[in-house]
Design a protein around this nucleic acid. Structure first.
Lengths: 130, 130, 130, 130
DNA sequence: GTGGTCTAGACCACA
DNA sequence: GTGGTCTAGACCACG
């Protein structure tokens, strides 16, 4: 269900967070859907339950999922963005750095814009939803 | 000359690499220009010299700067991007993640595209150069 | 009749205990009044009967309600607080922590005192009764 | 330096968070002060380093402390509350529950108000600071 | 069954 | 030296 690269330098718990967020964006996980239990995912992905836990807790803090005690973890039905200027600044910085690297790799402006477009489509990010 | 945020979660040596790359893109540093010495920068930025050293070494590995023994460190005159599919994949992955986060922060497709455009201009990345 | 938040991190059985205690304080439930049966409440609140049971048992242990076999559960007519230094210490600790959090949220001393006053009035806690 | 009750039902990492917040309020820890390293505290309190970690990370997320990579963890110099209506609601709820319990333990309105006053003074929460 | 917490011990990147 | 991540395995409260 979720792809995790054990060799990646990106922490596993962050990879999982990303995978879940993307699954929600793409509609694979719908609001209200139950997520696999910590133990279940732990077995499926052969990852320690604590690591899964960490991902779930972080997503819960971001109000993207919520847990009903004893019942499991679910995708929240009404996610609302919530202003966070600092986070936006961090993202802009990150984006700036990524663009610089992309350029140094030989892509020109048009190719970069195309890449961004393509990724947005892949993620099913359109104007309609936000 | 370069802005370093000691509090940032991004390693200092990577921040410095980014600052230098951006300075080159913006034309503040021209091919052939001499970079400050390690010791000099170390004092200016109140950063451990080893950290500066690490940045310079990484940039040299990427052929963006070069060291002439006894003379100092200079911006290379002819940088040519080498193919590196792995790195491109990493960048795409990074970009994808950043876009997801941006979207979860409440920006819609148009706003994201605008942001990218704006950053590209800031960095003086145009079609003409690559 | 009682408000339960399934999403809250506070256990449901404790929420119910609180709701009942507050209803008594406010006079909505009078000494001698009959409480809804476990099954009845279970349906109304769509909560597992075991959970309701747990709340009732705890309240009975605290002598706030009592069960008459075959007749139902009732608010006790003469509640008298028993000394319990340990519990008082726990409450003080809890209160201290809450005040710290409130302060870190930006409320100053006056605002905190006002908040406490307001809550006491809401709960109809006055000097006359204890 | 910090008092932890291993037997308490309150998670150790939360106790530690509280202890640190209170130490800052009381002026025992001043803005800019270095906190003990994770390992150091771990030995002092005979608590697992991971548990200390968790406390530090939570405090960092709340912007009460910050870490300079390789140097250690420090009390932030400029803490700014930051609106959080939801958290305030949770605190009010908590406060309400605590007041109910206190009342059921036999304290009357005056005694409760006195208790709150006393705690605020202990914590050195005054009007001047917020 | 569910998630939440904790320990012990390990490895890594950073400065 | 610092903090950040991960695993293995354990115990607990809740429903």
């Amino acid at each position: 269900m979720f792809k995790i690269d054990q060799r990646s330098s990106i922490p596993i718990y962050q990879q999982l967070i990303q995978e879940i967020k993307q699954a929600i964006l793409k509609g694979i996980l719908q609001p209200g859907d139950k997520l696999p239990s910590v133990r279940e995912l732990s077995v499926q992905l052969t990852i320690n339950p604590n690591t899964i836990q960490k991902s779930y807790q972080e997503l819960e803090k971001q109000k993207i999922i919520e847990t009903l005690r004893g019942k499991g973890t679910f995708v929240t039905t009404h996610y609302k963005p919530g202003e966070d200027k600092e986070k936006l600044d961090r993202l802009k910085e990150n984006l700036r750095n990524t663009l610089v690297e992309t350029y140094y790799l030989g892509l020109n402006k048009d190719e970069i814009m195309q890449l961004v477009q393509q990724l947005l489509e892949e993620l099913k990010i359109g104007e309609g939803k936000s």
